Simulated scan of single mutants.
Amino acid sequence: MNSLVTRGSLFDDFFKDFAPGFYVRPLHGDNLPSPAQIKVDVQESDGAFTVHAEVPGVSRDDLHVSIDGSVVSLRAEVRQHDQQSEGTKVLRSERYFGSVARSFQLPAEVDAAQAKAKYDNGVLTLTLPKKQAGNAQRLVIE
C-alpha cells in the first residue's frame, strides 16, 4: 500500500527557506498513515484473542475488519478535507483521500461468527474467540 500524498517537497522547502514568513503549513500536517503506523497490540487468553488497534481520526463507518481463519485484516479509509466558510480567504487547501490496510495472522483460527468489534476514542478493540475452522466475514463495528 502506498501513500497517496506526500506533504514535503523541494518546492515547499525552497519557499520556506526563501520567505519563511509567507510559508503556510498544511492544515492537517501529516501524511497518510502507512500500514506500519497502525499500531496493534494483541493479547491471547485461553479462549480468545484481544486486539487493540490505533486508528485515530477515522470514523467508525470508514473502518473495515474481516476475518478469514486465523488472518485478521484491518482497513481504514481516510477522508480529511478543509471546508471554506463565507468571508474567508483560503491561502492553502490540502485534501486527501485514501486508505490503509494491515493484515496479520494469529496462532489459531478465529470464530468469526462470535467475534466482536468496538471503536472508541480512536482505538478499535476486537474480541476474537478461538475456533478450529472459519470463513471470512465482515464485522459490524459498534
Rank of each mutant, 00 (worst) to 15 (best):
P129A: 04
V72A: 00
A76Q: 03
A115S: 11
M1R: 10
A112L: 02
Q80H: 08
R95L: 10
N121K: 15
P56V: 02
V71C: 05
A53R: 04
F15K: 05
Y119K: 02
V90N: 05
S34Y: 09
Q43C: 05
V51Q: 02
E94L: 13
A48G: 04
A76I: 02
D62N: 15
G21S: 11
V100W: 06
K16D: 05
K89A: 09
T50H: 07
Y23N: 06
S66W: 11
N121T: 13
Q137P: 05
P107C: 01
D62R: 12
F22C: 08
A133G: 11
P129N: 05
F49V: 04
T88E: 11
R95F: 10
I141A: 04
V51C: 00
E44V: 01
L4C: 09
D17K: 15
K116Q: 15
Q43P: 00
F97E: 14
D62W: 05
V90W: 01
G98S: 01
V72P: 02
A108V: 03
Q43N: 09
I141Q: 02
H52A: 15
T50Y: 07
T88P: 00
S34G: 10
Y119A: 00
P33L: 04
K16H: 08
P35K: 08
D82V: 12
K116C: 03
V24T: 11
L139V: 07
P107M: 00
V71T: 15
V58E: 02
S99P: 05
L4A: 12
S66I: 08
V100C: 04
F11H: 12
M1L: 09
G69E: 03
G122C: 05
L27G: 14
P56C: 03
Q132T: 15
D41V: 10
L74P: 04
V5E: 10
R95N: 14
G21F: 08
V110Q: 01
T50I: 10
S9Y: 03
F11L: 13
R95Q: 12
V71Q: 13
T50G: 03
S9I: 04
G98F: 03
S3C: 06
A76L: 00
K16S: 07
V90A: 08
G69I: 00
K130V: 05
K131S: 15
L4H: 12
V100E: 09
N2E: 13
L10F: 09
M1K: 08
F104T: 00
V100L: 07
T127C: 04
Q80K: 12
A133H: 15
G8C: 11
G122N: 06
Y96P: 00
S99Q: 13
V58N: 02
V55D: 04
Q84P: 05
R60F: 01
P56R: 03
K89H: 11
T6H: 14
G21K: 12
D41C: 06
A136W: 09
D41N: 11
P26S: 09
V42Q: 02
E94N: 09
T50K: 12
S3L: 13
L32E: 13
V24R: 11
H81G: 15
E77I: 13
I141E: 05
Q80L: 07
Y119Q: 01
